[in-house]
């Protein structure tokens, strides 16, 4: 079970339902949608696909099937890794 966590300390701000993440070491700016920002906030502690999926299902309780949310999370985490915002925890 792969674990993930934020790579370093970032500056972040929420603006009109979007999250703006500033990486002050690599000078990158990343914009996330609201649900992405929620996942990002949770990633200041170690998370897995399963724990993030569970958190989203609790937050948006009545609307979604677990498998779809899990696929969304997997895709999102791979994007965050590609952007250099999170890392695998050994």
């Amino acid at each position: 079970m792969t674990q993930y966590i934020q790579k370093a300390k970032f500056e972040k701000t929420e603006l009109d339902g979007e999250w703006i993440i500033l990486n002050t070491e690599d000078f990158t700016v990343t914009k996330l949608n609201e649900v992405g920002g929620l996942c990002w906030a949770l990633l200041n502690e170690i998370q897995t696909v399963e724990t993030l999926t569970q958190s989203l299902l609790e937050k948006f309780s009545s609307q979604n099937n677990m498998e779809q949310v899990k696929r969304d999370i997997e895709e999102f985490l791979s994007q965050l890794v590609h952007c250099g915002l999170i890392q695998h925890v050994d």
Partner: peptide, 18 residues
């Protein structure tokens, strides 16, 4: 709250001009 898939909307590197 309405669920939508978590997404990276944009990602860019800041270019500093000397």
């Amino acid at each position: 709250k309405i669920y939508s898939p978590p997404m990276v909307l944009s990602h860019q590197t800041i270019q500093f001009e000397t």
